[in-house]
Structure formats: structure tokens, C-alpha cells
Design a protein around this nucleic acid. Sequence first.
DNA 1: CTTATATATGAACAATTGTTCATTTAAAAA
DNA 2: TTTTTAAATGAACAATTGTTCATATATAAG
Lengths: 217, 217
Amino acid sequence: MDGDKGTFALSKGSKTKAKILKTALKLFSTKGYKATTVRDIAGAMGVKQSALYNHFKNKDEILETLIGDLTSSAIVHLFDDKEPQEAARSGKALLAGIGTKFKLMSFDSQNEALFKLLMQEMFRNERVREIYNEHFYQENVKKLSTYLFMMMQDELIRSSDPLMLANEFFAPLFFYQMQVSLLKQDKKSTSSVVSLFEKHVEFFWESIRIEKKESLF
Amino acid sequence: MDGDKGTFALSKGSKTKAKILKTALKLFSTKGYKATTVRDIAGAMGVKQSALYNHFKNKDEILETLIGDLTSSAIVHLFDDKEPQEAARSGKALLAGIGTKFKLMSFDSQNEALFKLLMQEMFRNERVREIYNEHFYQENVKKLSTYLFMMMQDELIRSSDPLMLANEFFAPLFFYQMQVSLLKQDKKSTSSVVSLFEKHVEFFWESIRIEKKESLF
DNA sequence: CTTATATATGAACAATTGTTCATTTAAAAA
DNA sequence: TTTTTAAATGAACAATTGTTCATATATAAG
């Protein structure tokens, strides 16, 4: 009965702590931080409110932990492992990969909740804004512009302002992610937006690529 | 002393009501609706909280009035007056006009506050989401795609999916507006984003336009 | 087993919240 | 002016909030 769940047995304490975070994230992202009460969180996990205070100093600390987790979340690491040199040479495939990553992220419920929390708190919480700006926006756009610059040198794409291009590639993906998030909230169909992820990559690539040869047909 | 302020003299009542809305909008957009108290609003306009209840049934009604105002706000009417036929024929000028409108809107403090309110409440308030989707997103993107379709027929731009193109044009403008809003909140420089508004129009137009003639030089 | 430690409970608290209402003050109408 | 209507005040309310703490219960260590 008391089966071995992997190498480490999670203590009851850290399991509860994780459950608090999970439950709080779900509630914060749907109702907003301020509108979510400690009783809401405790109630949703079938426990009394006072129990939470064995794991977190206060309500703020729960939010701060979630926000801290944002920096290590997949939501901010678009280029995780890729080698700059090779990545750039892959041209369109690199962009298609990022497009797909965005699309998948939109449909991962954990990332979706983090994204919604980010969007709501960004405008009233300076720390969240900082994380969004540095990790989610700047870091990705800068890396992307580096890749684009390499592609220009390799004459894969037309010479242009790499930072502008990076923004132009990034912005619609961000926007479509937001659209998916909004549509899902009302259980509306997301299929039209899904296709926009792909069409964006296609349209963008066609706008920047250098044709190898004129058509010979 | 008792000077005539225009044709109609605004009664004290409706002046106060307007002041409540203005003050509430500023506070809601910076602190969030839930985190703003009735005392905050009253205090910011130098009045006691109970005074507000002569003008609004409750706190919710203040928000609902602001949300209702959204539908008639400039933020949702990008194509206010333009004649479809002529507008489409103007080609790049039409797009540049919309780009400029977005840019100006980002720096109008009234619109900025409305935008921030919209962004924060959208994820937890179905009515706001509905207004965003219908008036801010759908209406504009549909109109835009109609214009783009006309431009295709006039062979001003390449034949393509008009709705996709409309989204591709709209998304970065929306994103840059959000960026301006975030930067201004921390009093950071917005100049790099300002130039992105213009570069976007230029880049987009170059991506879709049909060259009249091959270069003759 | 016994002991020690970690976690959960129940009850309570002080502060803050939205809201009401009788009363006072100001404005408009007669 | 007087009368009527509108708006602001001060005080209070009930409900909800985050948080604390002594106690109970479960888990782990000896």
C-alpha cells in the first residue's frame, strides 16, 4: 500500500506546500490575487485556513513564491537548450519551433494560469512587471534578434533591423497566446487562433527570407 | 464671477459624478478594482465616502459605468469616420493612420487608464472580456480585413488571407501599446517602442505590397 | 513502546470593507 | 424671501478580511 513513489519520498509537509501553491495559482489566475481569500484557498483544498500558516508566513508570501517560480517557468525560456550557431542556421525551422512552443504553452494549463497571473498582476505589481520585462520580454527578444542577425550574415534573410524584426515576430505570438487564454475562459473555440500561430510563422518568414533562385518553372 | 461656462451649465451633481468616475478610473487602473476602496476614491477627491452613494448605487456600479464608457471610447473606434472605398484605395496611408492612432492613444492618459483597466479586468470579468473581444478586437480586425481585401482586388497588395493579415497588423500595435503602458508605469523611456509603431507599419507594408514595376535603374 | 517534531484545528482578534441613514448644508424653484 | 430638492456629512452597522495562538492530532525518531 505504502508504495515507493520514486527515489525520494515527499514529506507530507512539502506535498501540502505544493498543493497550496497549485490551488492558489488556480484561484489567483481566475479571480485575481486580491479577490482570492485565504479561506478560498484552504477551502478548495479541503483544509482550514489556519493550516496554511504552517507553510507560508502570510498570503503575500504565497504570491511571492508563485512569482518567483515564474522566472524558472517554461513560459520565459523559449530558447532553453539551443546552440546559437546551429540554431541560426536552421532558419525557418528555428522560428517554427518557437511558434510551436508558444502554441503548446497556450494549452498547458499550468502555463496558462501563470500567464493569466502575470497579465493581471503586471499592471499593479512592480516585481511582476520586472520579471515580465526582463525574463519574458527582453531576454527572449534579445536572443531572437541575435539569431536573426546571424541569419542575415548567412544571407538566409534580408538585411534589416534585427531588434525590430524580433519584436515583430514576438508580438503576434504573445497576442495570440493572450487570445487563446481569453477564449478558453469562456470555453469558446480556439481553432482559428491556433491556425494563426502557424500562419504567423509562415507570413513572417516569407517577409524576411531571401529567395535562393528565381523560379525556374 | 458667475461666468457662463458654455451653453449648458453643468449641475453640481453631474460634475461630481464625472469627478468620481475620473478618480475611480485612475485608482482602478493603478491599484486594481478590488484593491481600491470606496474610501480611497472619496479621499482622493476630498470628500467623505458616503457622498459617493448619492451618485452611484454601489461600488460595482462605478465600475460598470466605466466599462460601459469603454464601448464609446476612442480606444475601440479605430476607423471612426473613414469611407471604406476611399480608405482602401489609400493603401499604405490607411495603415500608417491606424499606426499613428495607436501610438497617440498610448500617450493619452485617459485612454491609457482605460486600457490598463481593460487589461486587468478582462481575465476575471466576463463583461469586460466581451467588450474587449467584440468592440476592441473583432470589430477592428474585421473592418481591417475588409480594407485589405479591397486592396487585394485593386492589386495594391498581394493576394492572401485578409483575416490573417489583419491580425498580423493588429497584434504588434496592441503589444506595443501594452509595452508603452508598462514602461510609463515605471517612468522608463518609451522612445524605442515609439519607433516600433512606425517600423511595424513600414515592415508590414513592405511585406504585403505589390511592386508597381521592377527597378529600371 | 515513548518522546519529539511537524502539521492541522477551532476559536478568536483587530482591522478593513461596503453600505445605510438620520441629519446638516447647499442649491434651485416658487 | 420661503419652499423644495439635491448633495454632503458623521456615525454607525454587519460582514469579511488576514492573522494569531493554544490545543489536538498525526508523523517520525529514539
